[in-house]
Nucleic acid binder design. Structure first.
Lengths: 186, 186
DNA sequence: CTATATTTTCAGTAATTACTGAAACTTCAC
DNA sequence: GTGAAGTTTCAGTAATTACTGAAAATATAG
């Protein structure tokens, strides 16, 4: 199989970007290939198209499976496993965000929780804990917000995003009302 | 300088997590150290506390500077450069998100824009471009939303996050009104 | 300007991570 | 069961990335 220049560029770019994410070049390229491919591909086709060894592709696919980023299916009268990327880009976005949260945030959150339970041994520890508390609170707030958002339907989320800062107009208004009603802030 | 077990754990954890982000272990540890430290530290103190070579620290600090994650300052009657992490965790969060956008998203967006301008050579290319369009639109929407949000005051953002899905109640309501008023959807 | 304190650079090396080919394993048709 | 088709594992190696120490560069006090 010979990739068209268009797909080629896309695939190579994803390979490079892959390294800026946690995933490696191979995995990035495999994913990109599946993403732009109209049909599911088997491992041999992928290895051929990307010029990787068969085993490298096998490992890459395993990695993608662990990220829940590929779908495995069988074609009738064909024993080989065929892979494809989910069609819904919103679902992909979600999965990605979710997986990253699991890998990049949750461990830190749990470490912070533990650290905050420790008895500070001295003033330095007290200061450190203060900082950790700030970080913990921020992360906790962000993740719980994220979880909320995560449950929304793509359409709702899309609407929300398109509204952008308009949503905040509401808050500003709410604030003003508060100020007037409370009459405390200058 | 001897790190307390509390800070030690924090620093080591950040070192490990660093690798899951784009930054390396050294950089992660340096940042963590600065974050929990009550006073700004100079490069020698950092090298001593973390047991890295002086040059490694120098490189790590340079990296952190490129991420806009440290502040450089001078103490009176001291020639050395002192570093600290910004105190406002929200600012850190922002900076981090912004830098990541620049490094992880913007290049992809610009590649996609180019790819979409190309004339598709065949049906495969047409399909690929369709997929790329979907991805492009999603990313563009997400980043423009992100830019909007980015400009908000921390307090506003905090409020917004705390509201979580309550914001969507508004949308659901809006939808219902539409349906009733339009009377077209079953 | 000189002497000295401090930081940065960089070539070499260490450590880590990615990739391959061969062998082991699995699955399934017969 | 056997054998063919396909997949995974893994030890060895290649490639990449991180780290160090020595030397160069820079800054500043006098």
């Amino acid at each position: 199989m010979n990739l068209s220049p268009l797909s080629q560029d896309f695939v190579l770019h994803f390979g490079e970007m892959g390294s800026r994410w946690g995933i490696n070049r191979t995995v990035g390229q495999i994913y990109a290939l599946l993403f732009v491919s109209a049909k599911p591909l088997n491992a041999d086709e992928i290895a051929d198209a990307l010029q990787f060894s068969r085993s490298n592709v096998s490992m890459g696919l395993k990695e993608l499976e662990s990220w829940n980023l590929v779908r495995l299916q069988h074609l009738p009268h064909d024993r080989r496993e065929y892979f494809s990327a989910p069609e819904d880009v919103w679902a992909i976005f979600r999965t990605l965000a979710d997986e990253r949260r699991k890998r990049e945030i949750d461990p830190t959150l749990s470490m912070l929780r533990d650290a905050l339970l420790a008895i500070p041994a001295n003033d330095e520890d007290k200061f450190a804990q203060k900082r950790m508390t700030e970080m913990h609170n921020l992360i906790e707030m962000a993740t719980s917000w994220f979880n909320d958002v995560h449950r929304l339907e793509p359409e709702t989320l899309k609407q929300l995003m398109k509204m952008g800062t308009k949503v905040t107009k509401l808050l500003e208004m709410k604030d003003k009302i508060k100020v007037v009603a409370g009459g405390k802030n200058k």
